[in-house]
Simulated assay, not measured.
Amino acid sequence: MGILSLALFGQTAFWLLYDIADRGVAGAWSVWASGSGTGLSATSSLDLGLGFLQLAAGWATLIKARTAGGLLLASCATTLLFRLPAVWYVLLDSPSDPWFGDAKGPSLGAVGGTAIGAVATALVLTALLFLVRHLENEASSPYILRGAGPRPVKVTATTSGVLLGVLNIFYIGRNVNTAFQVGPNALAHLLAGKGAVRSELGVASAWQWASLTVLCGLGMLFAFRRRPVAKGFSLGLALFMVPPDVAEVSDYVTTGVLFKVSVDTAQTFLELLGSAAVIALLAAEAAHNRRDRRPEDPPGAPAPAPLVGPIPADARLTNMADSG
């Protein structure tokens, strides 16, 4: 599964490098930070975050990290949501009605073809995640197996759940406000991306907010129900959000609007600072767990046999899932 996740990263990285080769580092960064530049680019700033997430998921799976399950799930869900638009871009494009009008860029067929491959790979990877559920007991938390009862609520789960809830309010509110401003029919066109994007793998803001609503909703559900994949999923969303937000902040600095109060800047800083806080909390928790690990329990050692009763159904994990 790690190889498949790295294959997803390969598709994203290829088009990021294409933009760098086509426009130069400064030109590509200008496109990612502000959306400026002539013609169509292949990628947007969201692809920086997507590539970072896909790489982290693949690497975590290969080294069998405890966050691998959640990272893989986040990678698959995010890839599906942010690559599906490119699929209908290429399918609905025609010589008589070009999807991107007169704008010129890389071959839409080539970009769309790789997007179709990424969607198919993400679906296969998702299916494999469900197929490995027969190994779930082997990855059960030592805390549960020692008969200590349900997992305790950790500050990381609470923090990530609250952050995702606040972000969801932003995303839902922005789409509702857009619907009131332009009407439902225009909002549908914005969701589809017709005339609203400047990159062939890009998505319209309305689609971005709707997709993040779904992702944050899943993250909230996992966090508040203390699901084993919650930690990795929250980490994955944080890794996805940080790179595009850094690009946006750099544009704010360049244009002199860093301290100008607006909904866009508020959302950007909330995503950036909140994601950084989640990453820091997870790193601190991992360091604490390493210090507390018993010398006789080396990494990767099988968990001890349970002392009392069967494992509760909601405590079972996939082989690649988190234990916290």
Rank of each mutant, 00 (worst) to 15 (best):
P306Y: 03
V214A: 10
A321E: 06
E200W: 10
F259A: 08
K104P: 15
L273S: 08
A42N: 07
I169H: 01
A7N: 08
V182R: 06
C216S: 04
L135C: 07
T61R: 07
K64M: 03
T158A: 12
R226C: 06
W59E: 07
M220L: 04
F240Y: 14
F14A: 15
V242A: 04
L237P: 12
L71W: 02
Y89F: 15
F52Q: 08
A196H: 09
K231W: 02
G39A: 05
W209K: 03
A276F: 14
P98M: 14
L270V: 01
A77M: 06
L270P: 05
S141G: 14
A33M: 01
P310W: 04
N185Q: 15
V119C: 11
L108N: 10
A13K: 13
V261L: 03
L163V: 11
P306N: 05
S141H: 07
L48M: 02
K154S: 12
I311R: 06
E271P: 00
Q181M: 13
L40R: 01
F233H: 12
Q54T: 15
G195R: 00
A148L: 09
L84Y: 13
E200V: 08
V90H: 05
A65H: 09
A120Q: 04
A110E: 15
L145W: 03
L145C: 06
V90D: 05
T318W: 09
R198T: 14
L80C: 08
G173P: 07
L317W: 00
L72W: 00
D264F: 12
S36L: 05
T12K: 04
P306A: 06
W88A: 03
V308K: 06
M1F: 05
D264N: 07
L125W: 08
G256L: 09
M1E: 00
A28I: 14
F130V: 10
L272W: 11
W99C: 06
A74L: 00
G202I: 12
V124R: 00
A103T: 11
G195A: 14
T265S: 14
G37T: 11
A286P: 08
V214E: 07
V278E: 04
L131E: 15
H288S: 10
V166S: 05
G117W: 01
S94Q: 06
Q267R: 00
A103R: 08
T38Q: 15
